[in-house]
Design a binder for these strands. Structure first.
Length: 828
RNA sequence: GCCGGGGUGGCGGAACUGGUAGACGCGCCGGAUUCAAAAUCCGGUUUCCGAAAGGAAGUGAGGGUUCGAUUCCCUCCUCCGGCACCA
C-alpha cells in the first residue's frame, strides 16, 4: 500500500506538522511582501469584500472569528479567481460598553477603547486574515467623525435633520437616560428605580423621505437574501389608507386618525388615544382616576415588544367623539397600546373587524357591530369571533353591499369632497432619532443661541472634537461639566451660546464607514474618486441581527451621500451574506452563562488553521454553529493527515509528467474524482458559499488519494495532480498550511498569487453510470448502464434486475418513469 | 404580540431544480501497532426483524398534492434573531 503512515515512513522531525512555525512563516511572508495592500487598478476587475466591523469590546470571541473567517475565505477565493480584492478592517469604536467599563474601572473610555483595538488587531493578525491594514478606521478618531458632522450640517441645510420632542427612558435616581437594554422589568439596571418615560427635544434624520425608494429598490437586489428583504419591506410597512377627522364634543380641535379600512367605518364603536395625547392630558387634569392611569402608562419602558405583549389597558375619558357619517356619539378612551410616536397618536376602533379592538371591547363591555359580511355569503356571529377578512359592507347605511374596493373609494371620496379627510400613504417606518444623552459618541455639531436658536457649527470649525481625557461617573454626560467644551460664541451673532452636549447614535458611524475605507486618509473631503472605484461593496458579511437597523440606515446614508454628489451609487452592498451565531450547549456564548470558549487558547494549542477549519466545517455560514471541542480535535487531525500525505508523496521522490492518454482505469477514476471535486468545490465556494461541503469534498478527495495504491509513474503523477488540487482548494480556509505545502511541492510562486485550478472536462467522462431502480417509489435495486443508453434500454435493464423481479413478477407494469442518469421508477 | 428564520442518527451536519435520506466529520464499538498507554492506521456504526440475502419504519406533530416529498401546500408545537437607545 502507499506509505502514508507516519509510523512506517519514519519521517525526519522537520517534516512533522508544527502549526506555529508554519503559520508564523506564512504570516511573515504576507506582511513583508505586503500581499494584501491594494491600490486602484482600473485594468483589473475589483472585488470589495467586507465584514461588519467589530465593536472593540476587549478580545475576539468566537462570533468574531466566524464572520471574519467567512469573509476571508471569500476574499482569498476571489483573489485566486484573478480579481483585484480589497478587504479592509476597522473599529466601530463609539458606544456604551466603553462608558460602562469607565464606571467600573475608572479608566477613560478612549484609553480603554484604544487598548482593546490594539489587542484585537494582534489577535486578527494571528488568525491570518488577508487585510489591508493601511486602510484601518477607528470611528472615535476626529479624522473620521468630522465627516459625519460635515454631512449632518449638509443634511441640516436640506431639512433632512430636524429637532422634535420624543420619549426616552429616564432613571429618576441616577438622573440619566437609559438604553432599552438597561431597563429590566421597568426598573433601572443600576438604581433599581422605576423608569419614567420622559419627553425631551432630540435630533432626527428624515429617513422617511426615502421610504419609497428604499422599499422599491429591494425588488432589484438579487444579491440579498429574501428573508432580509422581506423584513425590511415589513419594517418600512407602506400602507395605503385614509386620514379621517372626527369632531370632538366640546372641543375646537378635531381628532385625526389613519385607517387602511375605511370600509369598516360604520363599525366604529369607540376611539382611543395615547397617554401623551393632549386630550388625555386634558381629561387627566380634571379627573384623578384618569390622571392616575395616564401616570401609570408613562411608567413603562418604551420598547415596542413590551407594549405589544403587556396587558391591554384603557379607561374612558368622559369625552365623546362624533361619528362623521352617522352623527352618533362614540366614547373616547385612553389606552396603553396606542403610541403617540406612531401616526397621530389616536386610533378608531372597529371591534367587529380588528383582532385587538375585538378583545379590548369584550374585556370592557364595549359594543361590537358587524359591518362586513363574508364575500361567500356565509353567516358569522360577530359576538363569537372577530371577522378580519375583506368582504361586503352591511349595516353601513348608504354604503351597504359594496366590496372592499368600492366601499374604500366611495367613503374616501366623501371625506375628500367634504374636506374632512384625504387618501394618504402611511409608513410604519419612523424618522431616525440620532440624539444620545451620552458622552462616548460623536458630538452633534450644533450650537444653541438664545437669539438664533439651533445653529450648525460652520464647516471650517469642524471637527467638533470630543475631549478624551475626562472623568466619567455615570451620572449624566461629563461634557456638560466641561466649560471649554460647552461655552462658545454663536457663529451667527457672536453672542454667548452653548454647544450641544448630546452625541450621535453609533449607528451613524456604521452607516458610511464602508465608503470611507476607500479613502481613509483624505482630509479635505468625505469621499473621493477612490470611493468611486471601490464602491459598492461586492460582498458584505455580517450577523442577521443587523438585518433591519444597520442595513437600512446604511442604505439611507448611501442615498444621502449620492444626493450630496459624493457617490453615483444608490445601494452600498451588492451581495449580502448573513451568518448565524456561535452556540455552546445550544445557547449563545456569554459570560453570564459561563459557556465562553476563548479563541486564543485554541490557537495556542492547535494553530489558527485548525480553528478556521473547524469554524468553516461545522455548519453552513447562515446557520447557527454548535461549538464542539471534539470537532476541533477532528479538524486538527485532518490537517495532520493532510500534511503527512503530502510529505509521504514528496518523500517517494520526483514525479514525472502526467500523460492523460497513458492512464489505466483506476488512474482515470482518481483523476475523475479530482476534477469532479474541482467542479464541486468551485461551485461551493464561488456560488453557494457552503464552505462545509467544500471541505467535506476536499476530505473525500484526500481519502481517495490515501487509499490509492499505485507507485507507478502515472499513478504518482495522478496523485500529484490530486494533492496540488487539494492544497489550492483548501487554501482559502487554511491558508498557512497550504502556503507551506505549495512551496514544498516545488513551486516558486507563493500560493497567494496562484490561480484557482480548472476542470478538465475530458477527465469527467465515464462509460457506465449507476441507476437506482424503484418499484412504486421504493428502492429495490441498482443497475449499471451505459452512459448514453436510451430510456427504453434503461427501463428494460432495470426490469431485469432479480430483486426488482420479486416485486414486479405477476403484476402489470402500469407506468415506467426514467430519470436519465439517476433512477427508474416502475409503477405496478 | 408582530416580522423573519430553523427543527434530519448518540452529536455537528449532507441531500443544490420534487428523484438513492444520513455525504463529510465527531463520538462509540471491534481490530492492528505497543510491555502498556497516548498518538496513529484498518473495519463497522439510523432504528427494528433476520445468520445472511433481504424486509419494515424513519427527516418536530398531524393532514394534503404527486409515480415519487427532508424538499411544495395547509394546520399546529417548539427553538432562535429583530422590534427603532446593545452593537
Amino acid at each position: 500500500m502507499r506509505v502514508l503512515d507516519t509510523r512506517k515512513t519514519e519521517l525526519p522531525m522537520s517534516t512533522a506538522y508544527h502549526p506555529e512555525t508554519v503559520e508564523t512563516e506564512a504570516q511573515q511572508y504576507w506582511a513583508e511582501a505586503k500581499c494584501f495592500e491594494v491600490g486602484e487598478d482600473t485594468d483589473k476587475e475589483k472585488f470589495y469584500c467586507l465584514t461588519m466591523f467589530p465593536y472593540p469590546s476587549g478580545k475576539l470571541h468566537m462570533g468574531h472569528v466566524r464572520v471574519l473567517t467567512i469573509s476571508d475565505v471569500i476574499a482569498r477565493y476571489q483573489r485566486m479567481q484573478g480579481k483585484h480584492v480589497m478587504q479592509p478592517m476597522g473599529w466601530d469604536a463609539f458606544g456604551m460598553p466603553a462608558e460602562n467599563a469607565a464606571i467600573r474601572n475608572k479608566v477613560p473610555p478612549a484609553k480603554w477603547t484604544y487598548a482593546n483595538i490594539k489587542e484585537m488587531r494582534s489577535q486578527m493578525d494571528r488568525l491570518g486574515y488577508a487585510y489591508d491594514w493601511s486602510r484601518e478606521i477607528a470611528t472615535c478618531r476626529p479624522e473620521y467623525y468630522r465627516w459625519e458632522q460635515w454631512l449632518f450640517i449638509k443634511m441640516f441645510a436640506k431639512g433632512l435633520v430636524y429637532r422634535k420632542n420624543s420619549i426616552v427612558n429616564w432613571d429618576p435616581v441616577d438622573q440619566t437616560v437609559l438604553a432599552n437594554e438597561q431597563v429590566i422589568d421597568g426598573r433601572g439596571w443600576r438604581s433599581d428605580a422605576l423608569v419614567e418615560r420622559r419627553e425631551i427635544p432630540q435630533w432626527f434624520m428624515k429617513i422617511t423621505a426615502y421610504a419609497d425608494e428604499l422599499l422599491d429598490e429591494l425588488d432589484r437586489m438579487p444579491g440579498w437574501p429574501d428573508s432580509v428583504k422581506t423584513m425590511q419591506r415589513n419594517w418600512i410597512g407602506r400602507s395605503e389608507g385614509v386620514e379621517l377627522t372626527f369632531d370632538v364634543a366640546g372641543e375646537e380641535e378635531p381628532l385625526t386618525v389613519f385607517t387602511t379600512r375605511p370600509d369598516t367605518l360604520f363599525g366604529v364603536t369607540y376611539m382611543a388615544v395615547a397617554a401623551e395625547h393632549p386630550l388625555a392630558e386634558k381629561a387627566a387634569a380634571e379627573n384623578a382616576e384618569v390622571a392616575a392611569f395616564v401616570a401609570e402608562c408613562k411608567q413603562m419602558d418604551a420598547a415596542e415588544a413590551t407594549i405589544e405583549t403587556m396587558e391591554k389597558k384603557g379607561m374612558p375619558l368622559g369625552i365623546s367623539v362624533i361619528h362623521p357619517l352617522t352623527g352618533d356619539e362614540v366614547p373616547l378612551w385612553v389606552a396603553n397600546f396606542v403610541l403617540m410616536s406612531y401616526g397621530t397618536g389616536a386610533v378608531m376602533a372597529v371591534p367587529g373587524h380588528d383582532e385587538r379592538d375585538w378583545e379590548f371591547a369584550k374585556k370592557h363591555g364595549l359594543p361590537i357591530r358587524q359591518v362586513i359580511a363574508p364575500a361567500d355569503g356565509s353567516d358569522i356571529d360577530i359576538d363569537e369571533a372577530v371577522f378580519v377578512d375583506k368582504g361586503i359592507t352591511v349595516n353601513s347605511g348608504d354604503y351597504d353591499g359594496l366590496d372592499y374596493e368600492a366601499a374604500f373609494n366611495s367613503i374616501a371620496d366623501w371625506f375628500e369632497q367634504n374636506g374632512r379627510g384625504r387618501r394618504t400613504v402611511n409608513y410604519r417606518l419612523r424618522d431616525w432619532g440620532v440624539s444620545r444623552q451620552r458622552y462616548w459618541g460623536a458630538p452633534i455639531p450644533i450650537i444653541y443661541c438664545d437669539d438664533c436658536d439651533a445653529v450648525p457649527v460652520p464647516e471650517e470649525d469642524l471637527p467638533v472634537v470630543l475631549p478624551e481625557d475626562v472623568e466619567f461617573t455615570g451620572h449624566g454626560s461629563p461634557l456638560k461639566d466641561i466649560p471649554e467644551f460647552v461655552n462658545v460664541e454663536c457663529p451667527n451673532c457672536g453672542k454667548d451660546a452653548r454647544r450641544e452636549t448630546d452625541t450621535l447614535d453609533t449607528f451613524v458611524e456604521s452607516s458610511w464607514y464602508f465608503a470611507r475605507y476607500a479613502c481613509p486618509d483624505n482630509d479635505s473631503a468625505m469621499l473621493d474618486e477612490r470611493a468611486a472605484y471601490w464602491m459598492p461593496v461586492d460582498q458584505y458579511t455580517g450577523g442577521i441581527e443587523h438585518a433591519i437597523l444597520h442595513l437600512l440606515y446604511s442604505r439611507f446614508f448611501q442615498r444621502v451621500m449620492r444626493d450630496e454628489g459624493l457617490s453615483d451609487d444608490s445601494e452600498p452592498f451588492t451581495n449580502l451574506l448573513t451568518q448565524g451565531m456561535v452556540l455552546k450547549d445550544g445557547a449563545k456564548m456569554s459570560k453570564n452563562k459561563g459557556n465562553v470558549v476563548d479563541p486564543q487558547e485554541l490557537i495556542a494549542k492547535y494553530g489558527a488553521d485548525t480553528v478556521r477549519l473547524f469554524m468553516m466545517f461545522a455548519a453552513p455560514p447562515e446557520q447557527a454553529l454548535e461549538w464542539s471541542d471534539e470537532g476541533v480535535r477532528g479538524s486538527f487531525r485532518f490537517l495532520k493527515r493532510f500534511w503527512n500525505a503530502v510529505q509521504a508523496h514528496l518523500d517517494a521522490g520526483p514525479v514525472g509528467r502526467l500523460d492523460v492518454a497513458a492512464l489505466d482505469t483506476r488512474q482515470k477514476d482518481l483523476r475523475r474524482k479530482t476534477h469532479q471535486s474541482i467542479a464541486k468545490i468551485s461551485d461551493d465556494l464561488g456560488r453557494r458559499y457552503t464552505f462545509n461541503t467544500a471541505i467535506a469534498a476536499s476530505m473525500e478527495l484526500l481519502n481517495a488519494v490515501t487509499r490509492f495504491e499505485d507507485e507507478s509513474e502515472m499513478g504518482r503523477a495522478v496523485v500529484h495532480e490530486a494533492l496540488e488540487a487539494v492544497v489550492l482548494m483548501l487554501s482559502p480556509m487554511v491558508p498557512h498550511i497550504c502556503h507551506a505545502l505549495w512551496a514544498a511541492l516545488g513551486h516558486e510562486t507563493a500560493l497567494v498569487d496562484v490561480r484557482w485550478p480548472t476542470v478538465d472536462q475530458s477527465a469527467l467522462e465515464t462509460d457506465l453510470v449507476e441507476i437506482v431502480v424503484q418499484v412504486n417509489g421504493k428502492l429495490r435495486g441498482r443497475v449499471s448502464v451505459a452512459a448514453d443508453a436510451d430510456n427504453d434500454t434503461i427501463g428494460q435493464q432495470a426490469l431485469a434486475d432479480p430483486n426488482v423481479q420479486r416485486f414486479v413478477a405477476g403484476k402489470e407494469v402500469r407506468k415506467t418513469i426514467v430519470v436519465p442518469g439517476r433512477l427508474v421508477n416502475i409503477v405496478v
